[in-house]
């Protein structure tokens, strides 16, 4: 089984959202994903990294640690920040809920991650920040 892994450490800067999408797209090219699969992963990833920057670090200093692992046709993504953590995960994952309406956030980030990926796991506390893990199995191109 083909495996590979990449870790990116991103400064808390909004321009790194696009960079993260570009790096992971490049990393996944080996799997020859469909345009839709790649777009799903890019969108979910973008939501996670944006969350870390806006909510985790409140657009101040910090590092966003992004890991992507390939196992066969499975793509695992982990986005970690050492920011303020999520006080109420249930509330945060409710569609249209946002703690930052003044920034015109839509409150759809977690809903998009859930919809576009096969599964989503959120681990968060005030002391250590937030870890988002998600995975998607790509369709088999040889079939």
């Amino acid at each position: 089984m083909y495996t590979n892994e990449i870790t990116l450490i991103l400064s808390c800067k909004s321009e790194n959202e696009g960079l993260a999408r570009m790096c992971i797209s490049g990393f996944l090219m080996k799997l020859d994903p469909t345009i839709e699969e790649l777009n799903d992963i890019k969108t979910a990833l973008s939501e996670g990294v944006t969350n870390a920057i806006i909510h985790g670090y409140e657009q101040k200093e910090g590092e966003v640690i992004l890991k992507c692992r390939i196992e066969g046709r499975k793509v695992y993504i982990e986005i970690k920040d050492k920011g303020v953590g999520i006080e109420n995960i249930e509330q945060a994952t409710t569609p249209m809920y946002t703690s930052k309406p003044q920034l015109e956030r839509s409150g759809m980030g977690f809903t998009i991650m859930e919809t576009f990926m096969d599964d989503l796991e959120i681990i968060s506390n005030k002391e250590s920040g937030t870890i988002i893990r998600m995975h998607k199995t790509l369709c088999n191109t040889s079939e």
């Binding site: 999408r21 939501e47 015109e104 956030r105």
Partner: peptide, 13 residues
Amino acid sequence: SFMDSSGIGLIIG
């Protein structure tokens, strides 16, 4: 070529 939930916020605004 790409839009995530930030675009939704922008449109609703």
